[in-house]
Each structure stands twice: as C-alpha cells, then as structure tokens.
Simulated scan of single mutants.
Amino acid sequence: MSIAPLTTLAGLAARYDAFFVDQFGVLRDDERAYPGANAALLHLKALGKTTVILSNSGRSGDYNAERLVGLGFDHAGFDRFLTSGDVAHDILARETAGKAGGTRCLTISSGGDRNLSDRLGFESVEDAELADIVIISGSEAETIPLSAYRARLEPAARRGVPCYCTNPDRHKLAKGAGTAPGAGSIALEYQNLGGPVRWFGKPHPAIYQHAQALLKHVAADRIVCVGDSIEHDIAGAAGAGLAACLVRTGILADRPEDDLASISAEYGVRPDFLLERFAT
C-alpha cells in the first residue's frame, strides 16, 4: 500500500499557490539537471505560482542560483533561492555583530568553500586546536573517510568548541552514482565526540520561517513543499505545518515502498502526496 496518493504537477498546481522546491534530488543530481525540471519550473511561473527553491546548502542562494543557470535552468523559473547557508548567515550575523573580529574558524566544506566564515568576518584556520568556532557546510566523503574527519575535529570537540552545521543532510548524491555521507553525518561525528552542534536548514524551523517571510499574503495551507528526503523535506514541512510532496527521484529513488513506510514511521511523518518526478 502506498504511503501517499500519487499526484502530478498539474494536480499540485490546482491546489497550491506557492511551492518550496528542493534542489538536489528534485531538480538536479550532483552533475546535471533532471530532464523536464526546468520546463516544470517555467510552467509553474506561467500559471502565476510563486516558487522558492529551498536547499540544504552551506553556500549562498545567489551562488546556487548561478550554478542552476549554468546547468541550463532559466532564472525566470523561480522567484528566490534560499539556502540553509543564507539562514545561518542572517542569524549568526545578528548574534555576532561587533564580536566577530579575531574569531578563529575551522570550516569543513567541499571545494574549499569558506563563504560563511568570510562573510561573518572570521579568521580562517586549518588546525582544530586553534579554532574558536567550527562550521560544517559540506562534505567530500566520497574521498575522505568519516574517520579522517573525526580525527581532524576531535581536538575542537574535546574543548567544547561550538559547531554550526549549515547543511544537515546526512547523505548526499555522489558524483557518478550512489550516495556518500553528507555534512550532516560529519556534524553527527562531532556531536558524538562531545562537541555542541547547532543545526541550520531542513528539517529545522528557521529555514521555513525565512521562506514564508518571503511570500506576500500566501496562507500556509496554500504552500506545498516538494522534496526527495523524508528525513529533511517531509519532516521539515510537517514541523512547519505545510503540505509535503515526496518526489521519487534523488536520495530515495531506488528504495521500495516498504522502505519508505519504514522511514516515515521512523520520523513520525508521512508525505501528503507522491510525485514520480518533477516534470509536467
């Protein structure tokens, strides 16, 4: 028995005025756009819908939007791109106003990204023994084992250095095929070492509050969240009191219905709808 009724993009558009759409696993994988995804975004805009791309990315929404455009997406297909990195920056900038100077930050990321640390005015360091703050925004666990991340972070965790995880995803789509541990898995290693972790992004509420603040006069019951992760997208939508649609691409694409039911039971949530793929 299906965990939720199967729907279509047209069916969702008939019921909802605003769409919070996940990036990885819904619109694209780690390397390319999914067929039909760009056309689907443009179709929603042609219907007068508001679309916010909501992504657990430690990098900014502007950076991610440019990456989407580079993959062939039309910027006219979405109104805003909001990331967990954006939310972390907004919150931490307020909290550290006037206090960031001299703060030494170790960033764990992919591709050498230190965008959040730089924007907050922190001094970047590589040695966990010297860090006052740890930011975990990305993962290169395709090539770096979790044990190596654990060993590198242990000196900071032992001293109780606060860690900000700006991408809670425990798994990510890997280059080529399959999955690899995500930034969330590295942050869990830090937490298991005894270090304090503060989480930003789905399923945590702040990103939904920020996204809803971008909408003008759209009631909560007219918003639907579209994602490929029960743990993050569906649970996050449920926690925010919003409808949720699980897309059968991305992180759970190869999992049978029985597995989806088990995962839903584990997190105590169920999607309102299932969508085979994000396309018209």
Results as ranks from 00 to 15, higher is better:
117 S>W: 00
104 R>Y: 05
206 A>Y: 04
256 P>T: 09
222 R>P: 06
180 A>G: 09
214 L>D: 01
34 Y>D: 11
25 G>L: 14
235 A>Y: 03
250 G>M: 14
93 A>M: 04
280 T>G: 07
210 H>I: 01
34 Y>H: 10
277 R>D: 08
162 P>L: 15
44 L>H: 00
9 L>Q: 05
182 G>H: 12
206 A>D: 05
237 A>W: 07
194 G>M: 10
87 V>P: 09
38 N>C: 14
124 S>K: 03
177 A>S: 15
79 D>M: 04
214 L>M: 10
105 C>A: 10
127 D>A: 05
55 S>H: 11
201 G>E: 10
90 D>M: 10
133 I>H: 06
148 A>D: 12
89 H>E: 11
27 L>I: 11
166 T>Q: 04
79 D>I: 03
245 C>Q: 15
266 E>C: 08
231 E>D: 04
259 D>Q: 13
134 V>M: 08
25 G>D: 08
189 E>P: 04
255 R>C: 15
155 P>M: 09
53 I>D: 04
259 D>I: 14
278 F>T: 02
119 R>A: 00
40 A>L: 13
231 E>S: 02
100 A>S: 09
2 S>R: 13
230 I>P: 06
34 Y>W: 08
101 G>Q: 12
1 M>D: 09
85 G>V: 02
90 D>F: 05
134 V>E: 03
2 S>I: 12
42 L>T: 12
274 L>S: 00
66 E>Y: 02
248 R>M: 14
9 L>F: 05
1 M>W: 12
259 D>K: 14
